[in-house]
Design a protein around this nucleic acid. Sequence first.
RNA 1: UGAGCUAACUAGAUAAUCGCUCUUUUUAAGAGAGGAAAGUCCGGGCUCCAUUGGACAAGAUGCCAGGUAACACCUGGGAGACGUGAGUCUACGGAAAGUGCAGCAGAAAAUAAACCGCCUAUUAGUUAGGUAAGGGUGAAAAGGUGCGGUAAAAGCGCACCGCGUAAUUGGUAACAUUUUACGGCAUUGCAAACCCCGUCUGGAGCAAGACCAAAUAGAGGUUCUUUAGUCAGUCCUGGCUGAACCUGGGUAGGUUGCUUGAGUUUUAUGGUGACGUAAAACCUAGAUGAAUGAUUAUCCUAGACAGAACCCGGCUUACCGGUUAGCUCACUCC
RNA 2: GUCCCCUUCGUCUAGUGGUUAGGACACCUGGUUUUCAUCCAGGCAACAGGAGUUCGACUCUCCUAGGGGACG
Length: 111
Amino acid sequence: MGVKRSIPSSEGFDEAFSNPDIKVSTKHFLLLLKENDLGYARIGVAVRKKDIKLAVQRNKIRRKIKGSFNVNTSKLTASDHVVLVKKNITSDSAVIKKELEELWQKLEKLR
RNA sequence: UGAGCUAACUAGAUAAUCGCUCUUUUUAAGAGAGGAAAGUCCGGGCUCCAUUGGACAAGAUGCCAGGUAACACCUGGGAGACGUGAGUCUACGGAAAGUGCAGCAGAAAAUAAACCGCCUAUUAGUUAGGUAAGGGUGAAAAGGUGCGGUAAAAGCGCACCGCGUAAUUGGUAACAUUUUACGGCAUUGCAAACCCCGUCUGGAGCAAGACCAAAUAGAGGUUCUUUAGUCAGUCCUGGCUGAACCUGGGUAGGUUGCUUGAGUUUUAUGGUGACGUAAAACCUAGAUGAAUGAUUAUCCUAGACAGAACCCGGCUUACCGGUUAGCUCACUCC
RNA sequence: GUCCCCUUCGUCUAGUGGUUAGGACACCUGGUUUUCAUCCAGGCAACAGGAGUUCGACUCUCCUAGGGGACG
């Protein structure tokens, strides 16, 4: 391994926000995809402090998204993935897990 | 048995698999969020700027003694308040330095005063004087009780109680107590109103700062030669300068600071205690779009509040429960 | 992360420790009008929460909650 999977703040983030190549959304998430020329997929998670107030909750959601990304990393292409968490997010872990699976599947279909 | 008070501890556990961050002796091994990491309410360290001294302003603090690097913290003691009690709480200096405020009610709200009363003299009604016992108002009305005294009264006088001042005694002190003397009682409350007094405080903050690389243009305007600007509150003084300020423009990527520290644990010892001293052992997160998760199994009391971002000492707030020790009150039994 | 400010009827706002907490718009009721609007009269309705100081806090002090802003 040893490959950095997270997107550094200096590059990528702003571009993914401003002009993404593909947008995929579910009930609670919005995925922005931007091609890169590094040869591997990268992940970035954006959670607003206003939407989820406790740091514990924010961290939990971030971890779940990253965990799910690592499981499904073989299916994904070489690009930057920015997952935006929407306002009405639930704390139910089963629902989140299901939706993330749905998200990756949708992305695969688009390809 | 029930209801409490005080002090302290704990914050699910074990195993397996797949992943994340850091370190090292790198096909592995080790370590990996809290009692509050939180609020940012105080106090420090650390870094840069200023530093010749003083005045003013501003802010903080406030019973006494001690602890500490320091504090608005802690410990012990005093005083007051609350509680049957164990105990708990307290911004607890000064109101005869000065100013201010005390609505309404009430006669009168701070140099006391006289509405209803009471008493004396006088008169047709009344008027003049004495008085603060009683009534009523209010949060607050200028000692209380008894006896004497008087026209009626009053610390007017006396006794006791309370109060103030001074001395004595105990205590390091705050303060307390006994006795003595003096004072007829003497100036109400509010300083979280202004204020006075004592003590303390230079300013800004890791987005501080340091190094490397890249980029831009050493552009235009204004002001002043002993005045102007600046030196991060103001003034004086002092230092610096051909500069200072304004307008417009450019850049902000990486490394470092970054964890060995007023550190932790154990033992001994001094102290009522906070805490100090000595010795030995140990290294215990360091990320930067930001690391602790997922799945499975077993057990129980079924897991609350909640996530480090330079680091410590406090305070405050949030919190499912559980455990231990000492003490108090009530009831019952012996 | 550091540092500031604010919170009063449904909304926008006044408010010197003693007020029945004032005003405008909105809402409700009645009147005027053939009806509606305008206009007139009346009504409803608030000090973010909790402690403390004070005889008495919207006001002074402390804590908490919520909202907003500055520094890139």
